[in-house]
Write a protein that binds this DNA or RNA. Structure first.
Length: 526
RNA sequence: GGUCCCAUCGUCUAGCGGUUAGGACAUCGGAUUCUCAUUCCGGUAACAUGGGUUCGAUUCCCAUUGGGACUGCCA
C-alpha cells in the first residue's frame, strides 16, 4: 500500500470530483428484494455491430437461469471502447434479443445500463481506491510502455506494469502535481499488493475451486483517453452495484479471475458467482483441425446468418439449450418436458470442455421443431421470413396464404407421421417451389412413357377420392403393362419435375385439375 | 516462455470405485410405402498414454501427450 491521495489531488487526477461516497452508492443501489435463490444475471455485449453464436450461447444461460429462478435478467451495454464502437450496434443487439424471444428487465434504479453513462460511479469508486492508496495515477506513455516491454522480453521477464517496472506507483503528491501541471492526463492503475509466490483460490460454479498465483500487475482501472473504465474495473463496479449474483462469461476470462477477486476483496465486497463457459469450436475446412469459431471465416458464427437463412430461432435455442443443460433432449424425447424452458438448467452441469458446433444436429432440431408445428404457425413463420429476408419469388409464394397453407399442409395431418424435410423457412419454400407455375422447372431429360400420361388424362377426374384415383392408376398399369410405381413416377415427374415428392394424390389435390392437366399436357405436346 | 482450463463412440453427452460403458445426431443395414420423407426394428463405433492409490479404476492422484485460453489504456 502507498500513501493515499488527498481530496483535491484525487479530483485533479480524475478530472472531476467524485460524485458519491461508497456509502452513498450502497444506498443508491440497494440489495434487490427477490426470493431466495433468485438469479440476477446480465447479458453484457460490446456494441461491435456483430452478434455471434457465443453471445447467444451465454445469453441463453443468463436468461434461462434468471427466468427459471424468478430472478432478473439485464442488458448492459459495454461501450467503453470508443474505438471499436459501431453505429446501430445497440439496435442489432436489441433486435437479436427480441428475435430469440428473450426479455430483459432493466430496472431504472440500477441504471444507467450503458457503461459510458456510468462515469460518475466509476470515478467515485476509483476515488475511494486512490484515497486508500490502493490505486495511483500513472503517466507512462505508450512509447515508454513499449520500451519496458522490450526490456522485459529481452531479459525473459513477464511483460506488464508491475513491481519495479511500475515507474509511477510510488510517485509523491508533488511529483503527481508536476505531471499534471505539465498537462499530462494519467491512467488510474491498481496498486497491486499481490504476491505471485502466494496463491489465491477462486471459485467457478462449473469447475469448482481454481487456484492462481496472486496478481501483481498494476492493471489499468481507468483509461486516460476518455476517462472510461477497463472491463475489469467496470465489472467490479457494475456487477456489484447492479447486484448481479451470477456472472456468465467466456472462459477467456478465467485468467483474470484472480484480478477480479483481488478487486472485490479490496472493496470488501462479495464477488458474484462466476460461470465460465467453454468456447464453441468448429473443424477448419482447410486444416482439418479444431478451432474457435471465427468471425471472419465462419458465416455461421454470425447470428444474422441464421436469421437471414430462415432458421427457426427456437431450433437454435433447443440445440444450444441441450448442450447447456445436458439431459434436456432425453427428457423431451421421453415426453417429460415440452420445450427447453420447461427443463431445469443446473449451473454445475454446464459443460466445461469446448464443443464443436454441429450443423447436422441443428438441422435435426429444426426438422423436429418444424415438424411439430401446426400448419397455421408454419405458414405465419414462413411468410414473416419471406417478407423480411426473402427474394421476390419467395414473397410471391407467400402472397396467397390459403394456397401456401394447402401446400405446406401436405402430409401433416397425422402428428405421428409428419414429413420432416423442412429445415429452414427458406429451404421450405425452395422445397415446394414446383407448386407455382413460375417457379416450376420441368424435367426435360426424363424419358416419359407418353402412353401412360395419355391414359391418365383420359380417365382423370379431380373430384375422385383417393381410392378411386388409385384404382385408375392400377388400371393404367395393367393396360400399359408396367408397374403401378412406374405409372406414378411418370406422373410425379411430369407434375413436380423431380422423382422425390410427397404423396402424389395430395399434390394433385392441392394443384387442382387445371394445373395437373396443364403440366401433363405440356409433356405430351412438348 | 509464463499462467490457467479441458480430455468417454465421427459429433454432443450420461456415468460421480464394481455397468454387457447408456442416450441422441450422423452413418450402415432391414421392414413399411406409388418415389422421397416419415415410422418401426437392428448394426458399426468411445473411456488419449504411462504411472500410482485401491481387492477393484472410465471414475481419485501425479506425469506425459493433445487441444484451447490469457499474457493490451479490447472486451
Amino acid at each position: 500500500m502507498r500513501n493515499g491521495l488527498d481530496k483535491d489531488l484525487i479530483a485533479r487526477v480524475l478530472g472531476a470530483e467524485p460524485k458519491w461516497t461508497i456509502a452513498e452508492l450502497e444506498a443508491k443501489f440497494p440489495p434487490r428484494d427477490l426470493p431466495d435463490g433468485a438469479f440476477v444475471t446480465r447479458f453484457a455485449p460490446s456494441p461491435t455491430g456483430f452478434m455471434h453464436i457465443g453471445n447467444l450461447y451465454s445469453m441463453l444461460i443468463d436468461y434461462k437461469l434468471a427466468s427459471q429462478s424468478g430472478g432478473v435478467f439485464m442488458l448492459r451495454i459495454e461501450d467503453t471502447d470508443t474505438k471499436r464502437e459501431v453505429e446501430g450496434a445497440v439496435d442489432l443487439v436489441k433486435n437479436a434479443i427480441r428475435d430469440f424471444g428473450f426479455k430483459y428487465n432493466n430496472d431504472e434504479i440500477y441504471g444507467p445500463y450503458f457503461q459510458s453513462q456510468r462515469k460518475d460511479i466509476y470515478r467515485s469508486v476509483a476515488a475511494e481506491l486512490l484515497a486508500r492508496g490502493l490505486a495511483y495515477p500513472c503517466f507512462l506513455t505508450a512509447d515508454e510502455m513499449e520500451e519496458i516491454r522490450v526490456k522485459q522480453n529481452a531479459a525473459g521477464f513477464a511483460t506488464g506494469i508491475y513491481g519495479e517496472w511500475a515507474r509511477d506507483r510510488d510517485l509523491t503528491a508533488d511529483e503527481i502535481i508536476a505531471h499534471l501541471d505539465n498537462g499530462e492526463v494519467p491512467t488510474i492503475r491498481l496498486y497491486s499488493t499481490g504476491d505471485p509466490n502466494k496463491r489465491i483460490f477462486c471459485k467457478d460454479a462449473v469447475r469448482g475451486s481454481i487456484s492462481f498465483p496472486e496478481n501483481n500487475e498494476d492493471l489499468v482501472l481507468i483509461k486516460s483517453n476518455d476517462g472510461l473504465p477497463t472491463y475489469h474495473f467496470a465489472h467490479l463496479c457494475d456487477d456489484h452495484f447492479m447486484r448481479t449474483t451470477h456472472v456468465v462469461r467466456g472462459e477467456e476470462w478465467l485468467p483474470s479471475l484472480p484480478l477480479h477477486y483481488q478487486l472485490f476483496n479490496m472493496m470488501g465486497w462479495t464477488p458474484p458467482i462466476y460461470i465460465h463457459t467453454a468456447t464453441l469450436d468448429k473443424i477448419d475446412a482447410e486444416t482439418g483441425k479444431q478451432r474457435k469459431m471465427s468471425k471472419r471465416k465462419d458465416p455461421e458464427n454470425n447470428l444474422a446468418f441464421f436469421l437471414a437463412g430462415g432458421w427457426p430461432t427456437e431450433a437454435l435455442i433447443e440445440y444450444l439449450g441441450n448442450i447447456l443443460a445436458p439431459g434436456y433432449e432425453e427428457a423431451k424425447l421421453k415426453g417429460a418436458v415440452k420445450t427447453f424452458w420447461d427443463y431445469e438448467m443446473k449451473p454445475k452441469k454446464i459443460p466445461m470442455s469446448g464443443g464443436l458446433f454441429d450443423m447436422k444436429k441443428l438441422e435435426w432440431w429444426a426438422k423436429e421443431y418444424i415438424g411439430a408445428m401446426p400448419v397455421a404457425d408454419l405458414v405465419t413463420a414462413v411468410t414473416n421470413w419471406a417478407n423480411e429476408y426473402g427474394t421476390d419469388e419467395n414473397k410471391m409464394q407467400v402472397a396467397d396464404a390459403k394456397y401456401l397453407s394447402a401446400v405446406l399442409g401436405i402430409e401433416r395431418d397425422n402428428p405421428k407421421r409428419v414429413r420432416k424435410d423442412f429445415i429452414t423457412w427458406k429451404q421450405t419454400l425452395e422445397n415446394v417451389a414446383f407448386f407455382w407455375d413460375k417457379l416450376f422447372v420441368p424435367a426435360i431429360d426424363y424419358e416419359y412413357n407418353r402412353d401412360v400420361l395419355r391414359a391418365f388424362l383420359e380417365t382423370y377426374d379431380p373430384a375422385d377420392d383417393k381410392d378411386t384415383w388409385w384404382n385408375k392408376i392400377v388400371a393404367i398399369a395393367e393396360k400399359t403393362g408396367i408397374k403401378n410405381g412406374d405409372v406414378a413416377m411418370n406422373l410425379r415427374v411430369a407434375l413436380a419435375g423431380r422423382t422425390n415428392t410427397p404423396d402424389l394424390y395430395s399434390i394433385m389435390s392441392v394443384m387442382g385439375g387445371d394445373m395437373v392437366r396443364g403440366r401433363i399436357g405440356r409433356v405430351l405436346n412438348g
